[in-house]
Design a protein around this nucleic acid. Structure first.
Lengths: 220, 220
DNA sequence: ATATTTTGTTAGAATGTTCTAACTTTATAC
DNA sequence: GTATAAAGTTAGAACATTCTAACAAAATAT
């Protein structure tokens, strides 16, 4: 088995790789808040264990073994988040830090039981897909809200970041998963959007916020 | 905050101290499966942090600070065990190892929520008392079954060990908490007991087993 | 009461994870 | 296309946790 620490590196590599297929040392260092030389030596270790490929001065890529390992940790994280929200009554803005700890628990039975009690969920409380027992994840391709056009009507499907602050911001605007959003206008200068949803007719979102909101077009 | 490791030492000291009020290095070493010199250096560290008093060649005693710290970890352990049994459907023989891991989770909210969902339980699935939020534990003084006399009728209240094997043995004999037991005879030679309970009229228990079963006399 | 066993301690080394300082390679800017 | 900045690496040290080997004190046994 792998250590707590190794699991955190694998998860970070997985998350950074999601878009580009690879992760570099500098980004990992920032994301994990660990200095570059430390990350570097851990890359050597993970490469020796066969989880990643790392050529000098090149970005890091997960092997299929590493990808599966990472996906299974993420599975535990997301099942936990779902359990905390659905079965224990936590808010979606309260579960990330608890799940970060529980994801390292070594007990297949524990997570199998959660899965069963939840009815084998496919997504977590933030709209992210939960990998299956083999580490396979079904990717639904959503759009970022900031890439939509004025006049579009879309459905809020997921968030790309799960920090307390961001989710509390969305709560304060009553902007929850499943909400239908109409884009009234986009400020060309800074990407600020004016949107309408539920009873809120003129809500304004900064580009930073819009980049973290994933949506699907409404099917007519 | 303290590390995982420090918490395990504190818990072991607490458990060993329960009877005698103190714990020695050799017993800690055996219980934790860590060599004596390692235990010794950790004792130095815990003493510096004010959790224990340790004079050379003397047993170790918890300070009130150390006792509270340990009790709060045990509180998390026992709440977790209760949650796993009552809310997730695990057997009492399946929860110890999972709780050993979850007890180290740092999140007062998480354990407060468990406590609330369970209705503020006072005992865990093995009959052990759950310390309150201040680390205070209500000790109910039970007797060990092996200390009872032939003819006694007693109620099975708790176990002193929570290993899988022991609990599975009790399951296989349908010997569960709350069972009323009549002691038919005791073999003077080896302490083996013949008992009667429910529909089982001639069950035989070794002394080792009887030492691990805590009972209360039936009030007439 | 001395010898033996058990328990406890000290010293020194190994492993894992982290750091800083110094250096190298790659990317960017002018 | 050279200068500068950014990213990556190497070397060496620090801290936590563990170990083995050697030694010391306390308990026990005859």
């Amino acid at each position: 088995m792998n250590t707590h620490t190794e699991e955190n590196y694998l998860k970070a590599i997985y998350n950074l790789s999601r878009v580009k297929g690879e992760a570099n040392v500098n980004e990992l260092s920032k994301q994990l808040d660990i200095k570059m030389p430390t990350v570097n030596s851990m890359m050597k270790k993970l490469a020796e264990k066969g989880f990643i490929i790392h050529e000098s001065y090149k970005p890091v890529r997960l092997t299929s073994k590493g990808e599966k390992e990472a996906a299974l940790i993420i599975r535990k994280h997301r099942l936990t988040e779902m359990f905390l929200v659905e079965k224990m009554g936590f808010g979606w803005d309260e579960v990330h830090n608890i799940a970060e700890q529980i994801e390292h628990v070594q007990s297949p039975d524990f997570f199998a039981k959660m899965d069963q009690l939840l009815g084998y969920p496919k997504i977590d409380p933030h709209g992210s897909p939960i990998p299956d027992k083999n580490g396979k994840m079904e990717w639904v391709e959503y759009h970022k809200l900031n890439e939509c056009k004025a006049g579009d009507i879309v459905n809020f499907k997921a968030v790309t970041h799960s920090s307390d602050d961001f989710l509390k911001f969305l709560n304060s605007r009553e902007l929850l998963l499943g909400t239908t959003i109409k884009i009234l206008s986009i400020e060309a200068f800074d990407g600020t959007m004016t949107i309408e949803y539920n009873k809120r007719k003129h809500e304004i979102l900064s580009q930073l916020v819009c980049e973290r909101i994933l949506v699907a077009p409404i099917k007519k």
